[in-house]
């Protein structure tokens, strides 16, 4: 269904923090207009991959392109076209949501205050409390509203549902489905929940020991044949939940 160049392209990327290599030849592409759910244990490099795509980290080797742009060379241009939700609310604790949005309005070339207002209303984000006083769910909803305000072509979402209570999780999920219905968007979303991967993902990619090990439609990836692979992965994800898939 997609034509032309994939909106997100990662080829043979290597990255290491001081002590140990993390990504060792990671390649992935997300076709324009599609959603890929990125699955993998905590610490396997999901957040790092998203940060590399946002130009917040520099790879030792390999190439990354988002909408054809190099995240390092074209950081400003790229960040204007991409909505990024980090794995925790990224704002000063003394700030209120309207203050954060005023900051974005100055610095973001495509900021749309009407959309920001509409999404905070739809998500029920409290406007009168500081980020310190917001729950994790409220803070993440504010981050999602901020990411959607410029109507981005690409969304990079880092565990947006992690640690949310069931109500906040459902609100975030419904908001994302609504945002996907607004226009064609390309999404890379990291999660450890198969339910979310199935609802949001056209495809899933499993990141393990430095690279994407499996990639494809969820039911093919985990339900291939009668080998019990689906059950095995479910058990793996379920039992590893506490330790952080």
């Amino acid at each position: 269904m997609s034509t032309g160049r994939p909106a997100i392209e990662v080829a043979d990327v290597r990255f290491r923090y001081a002590k140990a290599p993390l990504l060792e030849g990671l390649s992935l592409s997300v076709p324009t207009g599609e959603t890929t759910a990125l699955l993998g244990r905590n610490g396997v490099g999901k957040s790092t991959l998203l940060k590399l795509l946002m130009g917040l980290l520099k790879p030792r080797h390999g190439t990354l392109r988002v909408l054809g742009l190099d995240p390092l060379r074209n950081a400003r241009e790229l960040q204007a076209l991409v909505g990024y939700v980090p794995d925790r609310p990224d704002a000063w604790p003394w700030m209120r949501v309207p203050e954060l949005f005023r900051f974005f309005a100055v610095h973001h070339p495509r900021w749309n205050p009407d959309r920001a207002r509409a999404w905070t209303e739809r998500l029920g984000v409290p406007l009168d409390r500081t980020f310190r006083q917001l729950s994790r769910g409220e803070g993440m909803k504010a981050m999602l509203a901020a990411a959607l305000a410029p109507d981005p072509e690409v969304l990079l979402l880092d565990e947006p549902f992690g640690g949310l209570d069931p109500v906040a999780r459902e609100e975030m999920l419904r908001a994302l489905v609504g945002a996907l219905g607004e226009r064609r968007r390309t999404v890379l979303v990291s999660t450890h929940e198969l339910d979310l991967a199935a609802r949001l993902g056209d495809r899933v990619a499993i990141l393990e020991t430095g690279a994407i090990r499996t990639e494809g439609p969820l039911n093919e990836v985990i339900g291939a044949g009668e080998s019990g692979a689906a059950e095995a992965l479910r058990v793996r994800l379920a039992t590893a939940d506490g330790e952080g898939w």
Partner: peptide, 13 residues
Amino acid sequence: AEQVVVNPNTVAK
């Protein structure tokens, strides 16, 4: 898509 809470691409397919 909003009713059954899935990606609109899934309904389109």
